[in-house]
Design a protein around this nucleic acid. Sequence first.
DNA 1: CGGACCAATGTGAATAATCGCGCCTCTCAT
DNA 2: ATGAGAGGCGCGATTATTCACATTGGTCCG
Lengths: 213, 213
Amino acid sequence: MDNPAVSTAAAPSTADRILDAAEDLFAAKGYSATSLGDVADRVGIRSPSLYNHFKNKEALYEAVLERLLAVFSAPLAELDGGPVTNERVFYWLEAIVRQHHANPNLARLLQHAALSGGPHTNELIDRLFRPMFRPDARIEGGALTLFENTGLQPWAVMAFNNLVMSYVTMAPMYRDLLGQDPFSETALENQLSLIKMLLHAVFEYKGDASGSA
Amino acid sequence: MDNPAVSTAAAPSTADRILDAAEDLFAAKGYSATSLGDVADRVGIRSPSLYNHFKNKEALYEAVLERLLAVFSAPLAELDGGPVTNERVFYWLEAIVRQHHANPNLARLLQHAALSGGPHTNELIDRLFRPMFRPDARIEGGALTLFENTGLQPWAVMAFNNLVMSYVTMAPMYRDLLGQDPFSETALENQLSLIKMLLHAVFEYKGDASGSA
DNA sequence: CGGACCAATGTGAATAATCGCGCCTCTCAT
DNA sequence: ATGAGAGGCGCGATTATTCACATTGGTCCG
């Protein structure tokens, strides 16, 4: 009836359902702790059937990663297409936060990779973070001159990135600790205003960076 | 000659060497991805010999956790012993940061637990974070009145915690991305001044928390 | 229009590797 | 000698992977 490649909202193909299941499991338990039996169970097939769609476990993992990276690289490329102004940093940060809320799995996968230093760590770095540190990727208007002379700018960028990502990787814990769903709509708004407030504070802060107890 | 429990700097016992090896491996790869063979190899013994010191893999994991929690609960208890003033928050934050630099493994273990929601997650939460949210654990002097009425305070506390912990859990990546050793002495000082600056900025910031793109 | 053909996709059985773990033996210091 | 601690052996379970085979749906030919 309808070509699956053009269908508007057809039932997802088996390959897609395998990707969905594998993404969730890899993100939660990591690569080696995820068994193909678990994946197959979620899809509702037997594990040998997976090999009709993916060469092996490794290829499945890479396919999961590829699908996620395609989505998450978009806002970064968007920021790349113009001057890095204050307002666009806010806009971009909000886009990133919303994206991680919509799909927490990339952050979780990345966290697993960073912890165990798997072979995919380098690809993740190159695709997600390297573009942030291009020589022309400087914030204009002197908003962050505070960092310029201290060499702290890349670390500050990563700190804000941590703020966004570890919200997601720690989310299961927050559910128990604070008794709220960290992925609810109101939690999203809370996190957004908190991060924006921090960014505002940094933009406006003119004090020196040396602290004392 | 000397009682191992009182020895000043004696050679570590086999049990301690097992704990050291297991701690590193659990922290890097997580519980199920760590094999007892890996642990035994690091210690230089065969895996069945591990059972002379620990009942099973699970007990080994719990022993690792217990040893770490004993160390990391200390500064929290210290903060508990007096009024939560601005200065003491700075002092306490610095203590936490230094501790995570000295031993990154607790943060990594916690991150694994949060991601996969293992059975130990609750104990970690209770021992590490729950004390932060006691009813009397309010920052005095009105420094954070900004949060009081928004209900954001616990989330803000966790955000700063994320800042500290994800520095450690992401550290292997930062080594490749920024080309510096994240655990060097200068990197520690950089992170400290960055975090203190953020905290200062928050303390001084009086704007409203709602942002717009 | 019916039947041969074929590619896609599922299954169960089998395999080799790994892992947690128990059992038994050996060794060595007190 | 005696008991703590190390090694060797091997069982049973799990896993990734392969393979031979059944089923299905669609296509093409007569």
